[in-house]
Design a protein around this nucleic acid. Structure first.
Lengths: 228, 228
DNA sequence: CGCCTATTTGACCTTTCTCAATAGATGTGG
DNA sequence: CCACATCTATTGAGAAAGGTCAAATAGGCG
C-alpha cells in the first residue's frame, strides 16, 4: 500500500473544507473529527478512531464540506485515491470492505443524530462514551475499559451540542454515580453496565458491527506494517 | 431500467429495520424519511424528495439499520441492486453519479447534525424548510416557493427534535413574522430572504449541489418514462 | 352529523444556557 | 526552579428556551 506518513498536533486541521485532496487518510494513532465552524463554537459531527478512513468519500467528492481536525497527537497514512480505485477493481472482497466502511460512517451519522435528538445531556454524554469505548476496544486501544483521551470538556460539549459548563456538570454527575473516572488525560469506565443502561446503549447498536469490523481489520496488516 | 412500481400510504413503512432488500427504491412521488423509534416518539434522521434513492446504500449493506417511512401518498420504483451493479461497471459516468448521490446523503446528514446542534428551535425549523424548498425546487416540485406537504406539525417536531407543542408555537412565530404560510396541506414561503437569513441558510449550503444535482437528473429520463 | 385526528392555547415546570468569578494545571522563558 | 501567561476545570446565581400536561378548538371525512 503506497502511503505517506503524516504527524499532527492537537487542533491541527488535517484537511480543510473546500480542499480537493488526491489522497485519503488512514488514521493510525489518535483521533480525527469532522468539524464545522459555528458562530459561537465549533461543532463536531463525527469521531474517528485508529483504523478508520474518515475521508474515504473524498475519492468521489468534488470537494470537502467540513474540516477534518486532529485531537491530540495524530499519525495518519495518506493513501492515494488511485490505490483505492485499483483495489475496487482488483479485489471484490476488498471492494466490498470499502463499501462497508463507508456504510458504517453513514450509520454512525444517523446514530449521532438520534443521540442528539432523543437523549438529554446526561444520557447523551453517556452514550457518546459508550460508543467511543466500544470502538476503541474493537481496535485494541482500550484495555479494561480504560483509555487515553486528549479531549477537553469543551470538546465533549462540542460533540454533544451542550455548553461547556453543562458538560462539566454532566461529567461530575457521572462521576458521582461512580460510572466513570476522568482524570487528567485518561478515562476509565468503572461501571459499564450502569453507563450503558443510562445511555440506552444497544450493544447491537452495532448491528452492522460484526460484518464491517473485520472489514477494518482487513487493513490492519498494512497498518501494522506502516507503523513499524 | 428494470423496475417494479410500488404505492404507499402515509406512515407506511417501505423498508424495515433489519430487512435485507435486493432492490433500491427510487422515489418518484411523495416523501420518504428514515426514521428511528425512540421510547417517546419516532425520530426522523433524514428526508428524501422525488428523484432521490434513499436506500442506495442497501446495495452493500448487510441489513437496514432504520425504517424507511412514507409521508403522504408515495410512489416508488423498486430497482434491483443488480441494475446498479451493472451500471457501475458499464458506465464510468453513471458510476460516478451514483457515488455522488451517496455522497450527497452523507453531506446532508452532517448538515442535519449541525442543524440540530447549533440552532435554536426557530432557526432550526426555518433551516429545515429552506433545505426542503431548495431540494423541491431543484426537482420541479415547488413552484413559486410553494409546495404540497403531507407533514403534520408533529412530523416537523420529529424532524427537528422539538416537542409538538413547541413546533406549533414556532410555526406560529414564523407566520407572525410573515415568512411563510402553512395552511391545510400546502406550505408557501412568503419571504425567502427573511427565512434564509433567520436560518443562516447557506445557498452554497449545497456546495456539492452543482455537481450532484445534475446527477439526479441523469435518472430523470428514466423516471419520466416510468411515470408514463 | 359525529368521530377522529391535528392544531392551538394556557399554566407550570425542568433542563440547559449565560455570565462571571475562582481555582487548578500546564507550559514557557528567564 | 520560579514567576507568569494561558488554558482547563469548577462553582454559583439568574435567565431563557423548551418540555409536559390538560383542555379547548378546528378540520377532514365517512
Amino acid at each position: 500500500m503506497p502511503a505517506t506518513i503524516g504527524h499532527f498536533g492537537s487542533r491541527d486541521i488535517v484537511a480543510r473544507k473546500g480542499d480537493r485532496p488526491s489522497t485519503c487518510c488512514l488514521l493510525l494513532q489518535g483521533y480525527l473529527c469532522w468539524t464545522a465552524d459555528g458562530e459561537s463554537q465549533q461543532q463536531i459531527t463525527s469521531l474517528h478512531v485508529p483504523g478508520d478512513v474518515p475521508d474515504l468519500q473524498s475519492i468521489s467528492a468534488p470537494q470537502l464540506q467540513f474540516d477534518l481536525t486532529a485531537f491530540g497527537p495524530v499519525v495518519v497514512a495518506f493513501v492515494p485515491h488511485r490505490f483505492f480505485r485499483e483495489v475496487n477493481e482488483s479485489s471484490a472482497r476488498l471492494a466490498r470492505a470499502l463499501s462497508l466502511l463507508m456504510l458504517t460512517d453513514v450509520w454512525c451519522l444517523r446514530n449521532w443524530i438520534c443521540n442528539l435528538a432523543t437523549r438529554d445531556a446526561l444520557a447523551r454524554v453517556a452514550h457518546l462514551l459508550c460508543e467511543l469505548t466500544v470502538r476503541l476496544q474493537a481496535v485494541g486501544q482500550a484495555r479494561d475499559l480504560r483509555f487515553l483521551s486528549p479531549f477537553t470538556q469543551t470538546d465533549l460539549a462540542a460533540a454533544c451540542a451542550i455548553s461547556a459548563v453543562h458538560a462539566n456538570r454532566t461529567i461530575q454527575e457521572l462521576r458521582r454515580r461512580r460510572l466513570l473516572q476522568w482524570t487528567s488525560r485518561t478515562i476509565e469506565i468503572t461501571d459499564w453496565g450502569g453507563l450503558a443502561r443510562l445511555a440506552g446503549f444497544q450493544p447491537d447498536y452495532l448491528g452492522l458491527r460484526k460484518p464491517p469490523l473485520p472489514t477494518t481489520k482487513d487493513f490492519l496488516p498494512a497498518i501494522t506494517e506502516l507503523r513499524a
